[in-house]
């Protein structure tokens, strides 16, 4: 298919990424784990390091030990393409990492919990303001469907073009379908761009 690197001495596939975003406890890690081929991995970054840009040991000798953790999973698409899924919390303390998170991201799934829609507002704002394509996954905790899709859309002030998909974050097929909804959304955007190229 031609995505693999052709450099001599190295055979590296191309890595792409989908972000799984949303507020605290909406099921991000659960969804990543449900579709990933490996148990979700965890990686850490120093909050202080990136946020204040220390450049010597004096700067880090204080008591500040805060790290932020990210969960991620992996789906090998084929020998030339690997898809990574990053669970990305919406809290502001993570925003220093978002440039790196967004880099190479095809788009995002924003998970919402209908009982606490507001915890995912920040994630939606972030992707909207940056023009990063996303779909909303409504994680149906305990099968609760206490609101209609229309009510959820209105509460989220969602652009009509943004797909909204019901899911159970614990279920592999449901998680896959949310990801497929994002791919369809990207393909539709592609078709629109091809028809009306942005000048």
């Amino acid at each position: 298919m031609g995505f693999a690197s052709s450099e001599p001495g190295v055979r590296a596939p191309l890595a792409v990424k989908i972000l799984v975003a949303g507020g605290f406890g909406v099921g991000k890690t659960t969804l990543v784990g449900a579709v990933s081929e490996v148990a979700p991995l965890r990686t850490e970054e120093y909050l202080t390091h990136a946020s204040i840009g220390v450049d010597d040991l004096e700067g880090v000798s204080g008591k500040s030990t805060t790290t932020v953790a990210l969960d991620f999973g992996r789906i090998t698409i084929n020998s030339e393409l690997v898809l990574y899924l990053f669970g990305t919390p919406g809290q502001e303390r993570f925003w220093f990492m978002w440039n790196d998170l967004v880099n190479g991201a095809m788009g995002a799934v924003v998970l919402v919990d209908t009982r606490r829609l507001e915890v995912s507002f920040a994630s939606i704002d972030f992707f909207e303001s940056r023009g990063i394509p996303f779909v909303v996954g409504v994680n149906c905790f305990h099968g609760v469907r206490d609101r209609t899709q229309e009510e959820i859309r209105r509460a989220l002030d969602l652009d009509p073009q943004v797909p909204l998909v019901l899911c159970d974050a614990r279920d592999r097929a449901a998680g896959r379908d949310v990801l497929l909804a994002l791919i369809d959304h990207l393909m539709a955007a592609h078709a629109r761009t091809a028809a009306h190229p942005v000048s």
Binding site: M1, V16, I77, L81, N103, I132, R176, I183
Partner: peptide, 19 residues
């Protein structure tokens, strides 16, 4: 995303087929 662009159609198709 940083370029404000979209992944190429061939990448999207490959990801869709893989998923």
């Amino acid at each position: 995303a940083q370029a404000g662009g979209l992944p190429g159609m061939s990448i999207l198709e490959a990801v869709r087929d893989g998923l």
